[in-house]
Design a protein around this nucleic acid. Structure first.
Length: 228
DNA sequence: GCGACAG
DNA sequence: ATCTTGTCGC
C-alpha cells in the first residue's frame, strides 16, 4: 500500500462542484502551491499519470506507471476506473480527472517521489492546473507536462532537442516550451508543486529522448488507453 | 459580441 | 479526450 495519504486528498473537498464553486476553490488552493528546486538525487521513483475515456466517455480510466529515475525502468503500475463526476470544462480539468487518478494511485505498492501528469500546472488561467491540484492535495512534487497550451504565448523555438522558450501570460513566465526531440512538436512544462521551472525542465529532459512525450507520460498514456 | 479553450 | 486509413519520412 502506498504511503501517500490518498484518503485525505479525496476528502479535502467535493469533486462534483458547479463551475463557480470550483473556481472559488481554485483561487483558495492556489496559495498553497510551493516552488522550490528538486534535486535529481532526491528522486528514486517517478510516477507517470494519464486518464482515458473508453466507450461513451461515461467511465474514466486512470493509469499510473512507476519508473526508476533516471533509468526509466518500469517498476510498478496501477489501474482504476470510475464514473465521471463532471464534464470537461477548460480550466476545471482537475475536478474531472483527479478522483480516478487517486483511485489508481491506491493500486501501486511503491511510493513515488514525483508525479508527472499529462496536464498544466501553474500555466493555467488561475495558476492552478491539474498538476498543482494533485500535488497540493498529496503534498508531493508534481510537474505538468502538456501536449498543448491552455493559456500563454511563446516565441519560436529552435528545432533541436533541449531547446526551450518561456511560456508567458500577462507578462508573467508561467512555464517552459520544451523540445524533447529534434524537429518534433514541443511539450509544455509548468510547475505543479514543490518543484521550480528549472528543475522541472531538467527532469523532463532526463526522462527519455526517443519520443516526443517523456517516458512516464508515454507509458501511462499507453496503459490508460488500452482496454481490458 | 467573437474566438479560444489542458484532456 | 475520442472517432479512424492511408501515407510520408527516416
Amino acid at each position: 500500500m502506498s504511503e501517500l495519504n490518498i484518503g485525505l486528498a479525496r476528502r479535502t473537498h467535493a469533486w462534483d462542484l458547479p463551475p463557480k464553486d470550483a473556481i472559488q476553490l481554485q483561487e483558495q488552493l492556489r496559495t498553497r502551491v510551493i516552488s522550490s528546486s528538486l534535486a535529481d538525487e532526491s528522486i528514486q521513483y517517478v510516477a507517470g499519470i494519464d486518464v482515458g475515456f473508453p466507450r461513451n466517455r461515461e467511465i474514466a480510466h486512470a493509469a499510473i506507471v512507476l519508473l526508476k529515475y533516471p533509468s526509466m525502468e518500469l517498476v510498478d503500475q496501477g489501474l482504476a476506473e470510475l464514473p465521471v463526476s463532471m464534464p470537461y470544462v477548460p480550466g476545471l480539468l482537475s475536478f474531472r480527472e483527479i478522483p480516478v487518478i487517486l483511485a489508481a494511485l491506491e493500486e501501486i505498492t511503491l511510493t513515488p517521489d514525483l508525479l508527472i501528469t499529462d496536464s498544466q500546472g501553474i500555466a493555467h488561467p488561475r495558476r492552478f492546473g491539474l498538476a498543482c491540484h494533485l500535488g497540493v492535495l498529496l503534498d508531493m512534487p508534481a510537474i505538468g507536462c502538456a501536449k498543448s497550451i491552455l493559456v500563454g504565448k511563446h516565441s519560436t523555438l529552435r528545432k533541436m532537442r533541449g531547446s526551450t522558450a518561456d511560456l508567458v501570460d500577462n507578462g508573467e513566465t508561467i512555464g517552459s516550451v520544451v523540445r524533447t526531440r529534434d524537429g518534433v512538436k514541443p511539450v509544455y512544462i509548468s510547475i505543479g508543486h514543490r518543484v521550480d521551472l528549472t528543475s522541472a525542465v531538467r527532469i523532463i529532459l532526463n526522462c527519455g529522448s526517443g519520443y516526443r512525450l517523456p517516458e512516464p507520460t508515454r507509458w501511462a498514456h499507453k496503459l490508460a488507453s488500452k482496454k481490458s
